[in-house]
Write a protein that binds this DNA or RNA. Sequence first.
DNA 1: GATGAATGAGTCTTCATTCAT
DNA 2: AATGAATGAAGACTCATTCAT
Lengths: 198, 198, 198, 198
Amino acid sequence: MPKISDERRAARRQQILDAAWVCFQSRGLHATTMDDIIRASGLSAGAVYSYFRSKDELILAAVTTSLSGLRDLVEPLFTANPPPPPRELLQQIAGAIADFTARDGYDLKRIALLGWSEAQHNPALHEPMRDFYLAFRTRLADAARRWSRTRPGMDPEAMAKVLLSLLLGYVVQSAILGDVAAADLAVGLGGLAPPHDR
Amino acid sequence: MPKISDERRAARRQQILDAAWVCFQSRGLHATTMDDIIRASGLSAGAVYSYFRSKDELILAAVTTSLSGLRDLVEPLFTANPPPPPRELLQQIAGAIADFTARDGYDLKRIALLGWSEAQHNPALHEPMRDFYLAFRTRLADAARRWSRTRPGMDPEAMAKVLLSLLLGYVVQSAILGDVAAADLAVGLGGLAPPHDR
Amino acid sequence: MPKISDERRAARRQQILDAAWVCFQSRGLHATTMDDIIRASGLSAGAVYSYFRSKDELILAAVTTSLSGLRDLVEPLFTANPPPPPRELLQQIAGAIADFTARDGYDLKRIALLGWSEAQHNPALHEPMRDFYLAFRTRLADAARRWSRTRPGMDPEAMAKVLLSLLLGYVVQSAILGDVAAADLAVGLGGLAPPHDR
Amino acid sequence: MPKISDERRAARRQQILDAAWVCFQSRGLHATTMDDIIRASGLSAGAVYSYFRSKDELILAAVTTSLSGLRDLVEPLFTANPPPPPRELLQQIAGAIADFTARDGYDLKRIALLGWSEAQHNPALHEPMRDFYLAFRTRLADAARRWSRTRPGMDPEAMAKVLLSLLLGYVVQSAILGDVAAADLAVGLGGLAPPHDR
DNA sequence: GATGAATGAGTCTTCATTCAT
DNA sequence: AATGAATGAAGACTCATTCAT
């Protein structure tokens, strides 16, 4: 076979990555064997290893690819000026996460947990993940800063931390309990916060 | 009469469980070998296996023990009548999680991620975990219900989902970004919610 | 099984080493698979790996063990005072090498070639081998120095180099052509050297 | 008519062989992968395989080519009539081996060890090698026979074995200890042999 | 003719678990 | 009851070779 085109190469890579996602999701990162992925990808061991040097590299690629896919989905939501009010923005992002999930048959929410867990002991994974969530939180803080203009005295950083927690927690709760909808966040948030408490 | 008293047995079990936690935390659930745990526990392979039939059983015990430890810590916070206002309760629980973490040198927040991840593919783990968080959320809904009395029109179930998300997300964010304090939740929550958004 | 005695451990090690020698000799260092050795040793993979951490370590042990075995056999030949004349010493050492060979069914001469070859690209092997042959040559130079007393003007270092070459070359020639006896060295040496040439 | 001229074919073959030598020397026969050679040769896998059917064939060609290269270098030394005296001939041959070594950046002495080692388990390699050294020794015996005319009672065959041993051992000692010069052989030989011993 | 992507059998090594002593 | 040596199935990865383009 002569030199393969770049698109073909990229397509093969994606084909392997997709196979990996499916396996990772159904068996977990470590319980998935290379053989699982190889079989699922429909390629040979050698072919898979010519695209990804090791299982670790495959895990890294799978997680970072997923991260950047999520970013592409969420990024547009931050361009509105002025930003939608907190609860609406929250619902939009949570909705985007849920949509991403539906795509291609694997559940981002469940897979996110795998990545977070792995990142605890895998610095090569932790670093890009940290960068991603930091950048994400910065976006949220930007929005919070603009909300705060109309009502001073707020702490945009803390608001961003709360918003991010809400989203991350939504993912966890969905993965474990499975009965949380994006809309619940907005609705539930309405009942909390001042002036009700205290 | 057993050659080894029940207390001694329980102590041995805990000794193994502690060793397992330390290993799990620093290496991850799957990357930790039984040999790691055996060595860390200071016992022999046979001894460890006489207390836990398999690695899976050890993982299960480690996770459920940790879950019930957390419950014991959080439970008292729900007994106050009337319950503290949302933001205060939130901070108390988050504080308890952080305290639990500090205990014994292992970080519950980081370990929680391992358990959630594992539970995605381990039904024996998923079930008790689901039960735990469901019970936890019920507690939160109870509190929400009582808050709602003074101000009707709220949705206690949705409020509980938001509170739980906030707490779970706090754990994730702490584990990945590491710069979130229990107090941030209360502060940040103040800036969100009505009447500001719309 | 309780703790194994040191002798038993050493015996097991030797058992594996013997199996390795047989395989190495008949298949070569690299063409021998760990599975070959495992099967030949009559133990399990895990058992073999509990005695030798890797194939490289096994190769190293096999070669250095053989080297020190040879040393033990040759060392006594250097204790005679005064040393036997060159041709006699040569024949004694070559004879010892041949004897070593006969022992236990593997041929040191053929195996030596494997070790030399491997040492070219394996520093961990090259170093002890270099040390061994350097020490060996020092012994030869000591003997040469004593011969030189009765007839000055000789160069003991060069004589040692020649003697060592003769012995090493005897091994190579035996391994490749197979028709050289220890006695040939002494006989043939008689025809060379002054005053005949020039 | 072939698309590629015979000279071009021969040049390509040599190009591959050269690449192989460089790889073999620096990594060893087995540790060198076909990919190493392919890359070093600057050709494609298919091209290399069109010149050599297998790695074994490449190894065989590399060794026999090297052997015949050495023969071409040494052969002229045997044409002198009468032959130079033993020590001088020895030094000339050893010098030729060293020169061959210097050529093209690979060291025949180190590579010879690889070939000898491989020949132990590779009959296709052992046979031509045996033939080569046998022929070489015959040349040496011829010379010895002529030396013996002036001084009867010598054993030309044994003398040839000693000379060959000396040369082979010189190669080994150079490869392992690296501090032997061609001249050492002649000098050292002077101190051995009768009438000193006995 | 040439290319180099793909193949897949085979290698080394690990590790949960057992059981003879 | 306790020990820890032994087991062996399985996993990640390599590499000589082929063949579609």
